[in-house]
Design a protein around this nucleic acid. Structure first.
Lengths: 349, 349
DNA sequence: ACTATTTTTGGTATCGTTACCAAGCTTGAT
DNA sequence: ATCAAGCTTGGTAACGATACCAAAAATAGT
């Protein structure tokens, strides 16, 4: 930042005191119309903008929020973040984005722990923090992590998008983990599928476990049972779906599932590719549906049946919750948007 | 931000002056080892972090950079940004991300112009700005836009990733626009294709025009000519590839291209889908290659031949350039990484 | 014309750091 | 012992805004 013009220079050039200029900047009503106009003109002329540092010193606010997520190249987080940033901006906040798992594609995970990020974020003096996914989603979160989060929350409002965590005091915007899966199971059963599998999702992660749980539970409710060797968690990306499907196809042919639920569209795409590489067609040999829709699922071959989880809405609610917390509200926003099943070619009907 | 502990409290609790605490914070050598240790312990105990506001007042630096791009859900920008953030963080900078074209999927473009974003970014007192794509890529940029950029650059170092612009004083990290296309043309010709088309890319955008130009030029150099009705710019996403291909297939069958260059993988995926919907196979009926590789191209059906543009490298260079500009260097970093053609199923060999 | 009241202005302390200078304290050399 | 030269320290003025209070000016009421 090169030499910046200051409020007192504006004041001098306008022939008024800094107080008056400050009033103009903050739209205080008690400034005579003539002076206000003149000052505004001089401000514009010099392209003056008040120093956020000086303002921050007085107000203790930066009008920035921090967003921490594992991987922005993952379309799920990208679409969520898009909405978050847009809504935050409309509310006057800019967004500092932190990827915790950078350069994932090179399998060269960051050396920094998420706790390190909390420290950095705290130093950045943001007005609030949004945590999307990551370690917070683990089944079995180390105590130190919860401590770090609570510690951060003691300083700055923290909103977590996902699930409520035992012992964690941060605010939570909950996302549906079960309804969507149930609706896929229903659809498959209605289509006459008797053997259904589940692939993708990192094992030990809350959402994976919850969805698999919902999957089993729903089958049970309908008088069926899931076979354990038809449930293959792996991770969230196309290679993981590929690998899981490859592994599944090594099972005895006569008991293979006829339908599979994939964690998300990327996993589904990987799985379909694995089938193709074995000379199998989707949906003819195995039908597939995914739990998280990404933009291109409509254009894949075959077009993928998936759940619209209303991420835009989720993102907006998260920001709303954060801003209301920043403004001192204790109220907890509850959302309950049922995921919508979008039926396309990959499930055969 | 709730009540924060200050340097003077740390000083009081340690029984030293604020100066000494400040020295410890800034790793000044002239502090006696005993005191240093004691102070560090008290700092840790109270989880104290110095105020960025107060520091900013003195140093005029926020250790933040601003990144402005059209759409983070576009995998091209996502992967570029991933690299940018990672590298910036390693260099001690956090990243403010601004999407200018938010909620694109709802076709509800932002009401704010990019110029508005420049103003906001300037107010944010970042130490530098990175501009990735957007209006800066237009063939014919309004003068007001260039003015706004130059104006911003007068205050803060601005680095543009893309192409050098006439009249724009900002620093530029240039990206190859032609070599990659040329290598695809060569490959297609070597495979015996005589009629080649080009689809995707927003018309009036520098990269679109440049690639189409390179496409024509390379064909000419090899003694062929491109047919104008086989060149269909549209945009960068799957629906745009779909639409362009649909349009192309409406042409008389006997003169249809046998190979097509797509702007990027999303466009290619859309185009392949359009073919499929007309009962055509890729690569059997029409071969396809794309100019920008995205993560899933390897798993699509068919696997897509595309160019690896070395985005990670580009992102890193951009940050390097920006940081060196922040530190007062005038030197311009030149890069010249030839895109690498990755041959997969969609081009038939 | 002279208060009383309201509106508009200006002055100054304050926020939490760092930079800079001056002072105190060692240490070692004479 | 004395003094110069180096370490360590502390005190204080910035940095650029806002908040608050007091003063001045404008307006209204008698």
């Amino acid at each position: 930042m090169k030499n910046k013009i200051t409020i007192s220079e504006i004041a001098r050039k306008s022939g008024v005191s800094v107080s008056t200029v400050s009033r103009v900047l903050n739209n205080s009503p008690s400034v005579s119309p003539g002076k206000r106009e003149k000052i505004q003109q001089i401000i514009a002329e010099h392209n003056y903008t008040p120093s956020v540092f000086a303002r921050g010193m007085v107000n203790h606010t930066s009008q920035n929020i921090g967003v921490i997520l594992p991987d922005i190249t993952n379309p799920y987080f990208a679409s969520l973040f898009m909405e978050v940033q847009s809504f935050a901006m409309q509310s006057g906040y800019a967004t500092l984005l932190f990827n915790t798992m950078f350069v994932r594609n090179r399998k060269q995970q960051s050396k920094m722990s998420e706790e390190d990020y909390f420290r950095i974020i705290q130093e950045k003096q943001v007005d609030g923090v949004l945590v999307l996914g990551g370690h917070i989603d683990k089944e079995d979160i180390p105590d130190s992590y919860i401590q770090a989060l609570n510690q951060l929350h003691r300083q700055i409002p923290v909103v977590i998008v996902g699930t409520r965590i035992e012992g964690c005091n941060c605010l939570v915007v909950e996302r549906d983990l079960k309804q969507g899966v149930a609706s896929i199971v229903h659809h498959f059963i209605a289509l006459g599928h008797e053997r259904i599998g589940f692939i993708g999702g990192e094992p030990g992660i809350r959402i994976t476990t919850a969805r698999i749980e919902a999957f089993k539970q729903e089958l049970r409710a309908l008088g069926r049972t899931a076979l354990d060797n038809h449930i293959i968690p792996s991770d969230y990306y196309a290679p993981d779906g590929y690998e899981a499907m490859r592994q599944l196809l090594d099972e005895p042919q006569d008991t293979l599932p006829t339908a599979i639920i994939a964690m998300n569209d990327m996993v589904a795409i990987g799985a379909i590719r694995a089938m193709k590489d074995r000379g199998l067609q989707c949906p003819e040999h195995i039908a597939i549906a995914s739990c998280d829709q990404f933009p291109q699922s409509e254009y894949a071959i075959p077009r993928i049946t998936s759940l619209d989880q209303h991420n835009e809405y989720l993102g907006r609610m998260a920001v709303l919750q954060l801003i209301s917390a920043i403004n001192g509200s204790e109220e907890m926003i509850r959302i309950n948007h049922t995921p919508r099943l979008i039926i396309r070619e990959s499930c055969g009907a």
